[in-house]
Amino acid sequence: MSLSKQQVQHIAMLARLSLDDRDIDEVVEKLSSIVEFVDQLQAAPTDDVSPMAHPMNQVQRLRADAVTEPNERDRVQQNAPSVSDGVYLVPKVIE
């Protein structure tokens, strides 16, 4: 199945990726070729097959409820592009 320009723009919005008008045709073409390629999965007979989410048949291990992580705010925020008084800044969120 090939994708429409509109579909690709919707996907890009969901993924929060701005798309340059110059690039959009190429993106549509390449994504379409990938979708067409994976379309061959549709033909596989999988009626009674259970989906496999993990390669190993293991169950979740549980951690003791203990505080083990110290405050490392200052070190961690050295990677932050914009902070003030210990909070991360983003353009105003309107609710």
Binding site: D85, Y88, L89, P91, K92
Partner: peptide, 10 residues
């Protein structure tokens, strides 16, 4: 939302 001018703090 208050106290960070044009920004919100997280």
């Amino acid at each position: 939302h208050e106290g960070f001018a044009e920004n919100s703090g997280i």
